[in-house]
Design a protein around this nucleic acid. Structure first.
Lengths: 332, 332
DNA sequence: ATGAAAGCGCTAACAG
DNA sequence: CTGTTAGCGCTTTCAT
């Protein structure tokens, strides 16, 4: 069943059918009704491939993230997909993994699908932010608009929507300092732009509160609850009275360790996680956590993309503030 | 840069270029090399829309799930996507929500994209399994093969890959009975096929262990940790010495309640969750949980789909056993 | 082994 | 307001 069949059955030309499909204003209501009736009756749907070929678009955007199994990315993808669908766009999902090679391959392959735009979730995609690490993004942005969620690169075709990780971490650490904490652990699981920004927030907050940065308090570790717990158990001389982390999973690892050691939270150790994920309300005691406003971020990204796709100008950098969600793992 | 340009530059016809692109055996190695060199140099990639139009396929499969933000579905989608990509397929993701109307709409819209196959994650898609509830699936299966993850419908074009929820729950409850538990709570958050299967496993295990089914021990509740905890707090006469759940989140809610009441786990109450998610190792004490083998399920589904797409026959129903992962929330 | 040419189903410019 | 027609870029007979 194609446009010719419908045209024949309705006694009009294919051009008219096409116009009806696209709801063109220059078709009389009468013929519109007639054609629609036939389409309905025949259960006709236009062939998207042919349409795509003509228009060079299939109303599809590519979403790339390292791994949707990760809770944070999963919720980001969910928000993005939902919002895109509001505008009638479909999305192609590509889980790229974390390595540079696979990330670049993902971008290349998804561009081959002739998507209308690209969304990359996570700061992994800019590496250390240098020219060499971002060249592939700039090239991609010459084909279609590229949106970065939680990463920033200055470049014409690249649009960045980010949570203020620096401020989020700065506020969290300041809060712990207000509680009187002196030795605040910082756990992170990546050297991505956003992780480093958080680290900067951590260090600045320490300094601004009269504490000094101690390298041994910064712990780089895979985001696995048990890994963190086990690591802390084998540390001989690591003393701390508080902890912040760039991911809730890391913070929960600390919770596990502290409780199994027989210390109290928050009395002995005060802890703050990041992302306000379900893990935060799952552990005992529940974890205070920095909410990075994933929904707002994703909504903004899609809305911005749509105005851009309409041909209007939009900002290249949009920053959304974070907020601390207080639970029982901290005082104050 | 299209096939004509490449043909001209290489001094051959477009047919030859097409053959080279598709690695047809009837092109001499010499011309292949020549054409490939030009394609490389020009950075040529065939237009997928045109290709799709000709072949009526864009090597794409549709994945529909109620909500990727849910950890279980997210990991399923991650596995599916990864495996599909091994075979060179892309995937279009559609989060349909849980309602019948939106689920049907999802199927319809994604079929319009002319995907090569459809994967539906979760037993929500078959409603109560009756003719009326599954008619839309049968219709869909006339367009493309439909794969159901964790649901079963007997129909020609529909292929089902499922974890044995009945056996998983039966084993879990039997284990609690072995511990000497008499009043075992059953928490569930849906009336889907798989939830009802688990309930059947629960009931049969009770009977086979000389216990009887008590309706007041079956609790229907939204899969939110706090909801469950709060609900249990306001129950006056609900006594239980164990609990199983169809989702880890529900079981964690019980953990929260029991601990806050000051009872011990597993001494006073023994608890088993379902899905072996990260929540299970996050709570305190860690939760024994039934692992439904998501990865095996998804791998099997995709592999089966690929053999089917090659024109071979495959089974319509594939069942994968579950296994109990024991942690500190249970004895034995 | 290679080329010419006829579609695939739709959009849009142009003519009326 | 409606119809005719020329693409869009590729695959695939059918010749050679």
């Amino acid at each position: 069943m194609n446009i010719y069949d419908i045209a024949a059955l309705a006694g009009v030309s294919i051009a008219t059918v096409s116009r009806v499909v696209n709801d063109s204003p220059k078709v009389s209501e009468k013929t519109k009704a007639k054609v629609r009736a036939v389409m309905e009756e025949q259960n006709y749907t236009p062939n998207v491939f042919a349409r795509g070929l003509g228009l060079n678009s299939m109303q599809t955007v590519g979403i790339i993230c390292p791994d949707v199994a990760d809770a944070y990315m999963a919720s980001a993808v969910a928000y993005l997909e939902k919002r895109l669908r509001c505008y009638g766009y479909d999305c192609i999902l590509y889980c790229s993994g974390y390595e540079e090679k696979t990330r670049k391959k993902a971008v290349k392959l998804i561009l081959n699908k002739r998507v209308d735009a690209l969304i990359l979730v996570g700061s992994q995609y800019i590496g250390d932010g240098g020219e060499a690490d971002t060249r592939y993004l700039k090239e991609a942005s010459e084909e279609v608009p590229v949106f970065l969620i939680n990463a920033y690169v200055r470049c014409d075709g690249i649009y960045c929507v980010l949570a203020d990780g620096y401020q989020g971490m700065y506020d969290a650490v300041s809060r712990l300092a207000d509680e009187g904490r002196k030795r605040i652990l910082f756990l992170y699981d990546s050297n991505s732009y956003s992780a480093l920004e958080k680290m900067q927030g951590y260090e600045d907050a320490l300094r601004d509160n009269g504490l000094h940065v101690e390298e041994s308090l910064k712990i780089y570790m895979k985001n696995k609850i048990q890994k963190v717990r086990d690591f802390l158990f084998v540390q001989e001389n690591l003393e701390f009275d508080a902890a912040v982390a760039t991911e809730d999973g890391l913070a929960v690892g600390v919770v596990k360790y502290v409780r199994q050691k027989g210390y109290s939270i928050p009395e002995d150790v005060s802890i703050i996680g990041y992302n306000n994920s379900e893990l935060a309300v799952c552990c005992e005691p529940e974890l205070s956590s920095v909410d990075s406003r994933g929904e707002a971020l994703c909504r903004t990204a899609v809305d911005t993309m749509m105005t851009l796709l309409k041909g209007k100008n939009v900002k290249h950098k949009i920053v959304v503030p974070c907020k601390l969600v207080k639970r029982r793992s901290t005082n104050l």
